[in-house]
Amino acid sequence: MYFITFREAKRLLLSKATRVNLDLRKTNRTWEIAREGDEFIFPDGTRVSKALIERIARDENSVYFIKNGVYKAAIAGEHFYKLVPTIPPTIEINGIRMHRTKGTNPLHDTKSKVNAVKPKEGETILDTCMGLGYTAIEAAKRGAYVITIEKDPNVIELAKINPWSRELFTGGRIQVIQGDAFEVVKKFNDETFDAIIHDPPRFSLAGQLYSEEFYRELFRILKPGGRLFHYVGNPGKKYRRKDLQRGVMERLRRAGFVGVKRVEEALGVVARKSEKRK
């Protein structure tokens, strides 16, 4: 499977034969694309018309993949899902991007969240809301074993397409569970995880994942001394003077967490479970 965005399409239109990257810049590798008349010939033999390449060159908000034809990396159902050609790609659901991209990129966004709990070699980490899996992959790269949960099968399908998500399914240190995190966490044993990274959809879409009831479950499954990072963002703060982080922090404390404080660079909150008394 090969990938093309507006960047590569524009390059193809500049020359009769050229080399371009076809893995969404996951690597620096390039592939040669031949041209015959008004057709471009991709490495698998797929012929793509100049008119279609011109159309892709004008579409700066989509990712296309080539596999015996040209397809948009998108899924239409109850919601509309698609990969967006940031580097690495983010996922967009009904026009809402799942990573911060203004002034940053999904990889830096991910690292800021993972750095908040500093996974260590041999630890077991829970990633409550997988998305494209960048958080789970980053934690696994640091030597942790990761369990990650994703509710939406359409998101999992886009992750399977996305080359930047490949380690989710091939790395051997990550277990993917399809299900609702609110229900899945109830099945874990007490004191299972060394750290939890909780990066839920916005409050309006998944309010139960911001509830004291859910936080009590996270507290239960954390080991003594375990760390939590909770991405909150700041929706409504600028214009409506709402402080969602403050409410989150209050509920975390009621659930038993200590050391609850804001992490401004990651737009979230950290907390921990106290060590057991001797």
Score class of each variant (00 low, 15 high):
64 Y>K: 11
228 L>H: 04
164 W>D: 03
233 G>P: 09
270 V>R: 06
249 M>G: 04
93 I>E: 05
277 R>H: 09
131 G>D: 08
112 S>I: 02
11 R>V: 15
144 A>Y: 08
133 G>L: 05
114 V>T: 05
101 T>F: 09
166 R>P: 00
89 P>R: 01
256 G>W: 01
174 I>N: 03
259 G>V: 05
29 R>T: 14
60 E>D: 15
33 I>M: 09
39 E>Y: 13
231 Y>L: 12
91 I>P: 11
185 V>A: 08
271 A>D: 07
4 I>K: 01
258 V>Y: 00
105 N>L: 02
178 Q>E: 15
144 A>G: 06
253 R>W: 03
179 G>M: 07
236 G>N: 07
115 N>V: 00
256 G>S: 02
43 P>K: 03
52 L>S: 00
261 K>T: 05
195 A>W: 07
167 E>T: 01
192 T>S: 15
148 T>C: 10
101 T>Y: 05
262 R>W: 05
227 R>Q: 02
166 R>F: 00
256 G>K: 01
235 P>E: 05
195 A>C: 10
106 P>G: 08
226 G>P: 09
198 H>I: 12
210 Y>S: 10
233 G>S: 11
99 H>L: 10
153 P>G: 01
195 A>V: 03
32 E>R: 13
254 R>F: 00
270 V>D: 05
244 L>A: 04
268 G>A: 07
124 T>H: 13
118 K>F: 02
167 E>L: 08
178 Q>V: 09
145 Y>G: 00
156 I>N: 06
220 R>Q: 02
254 R>V: 00
212 E>N: 06
217 E>R: 06
101 T>C: 01
12 L>C: 04
58 R>F: 10
188 F>L: 07
185 V>C: 07
271 A>K: 07
77 G>E: 15
166 R>N: 05
76 A>Y: 11
276 K>L: 13
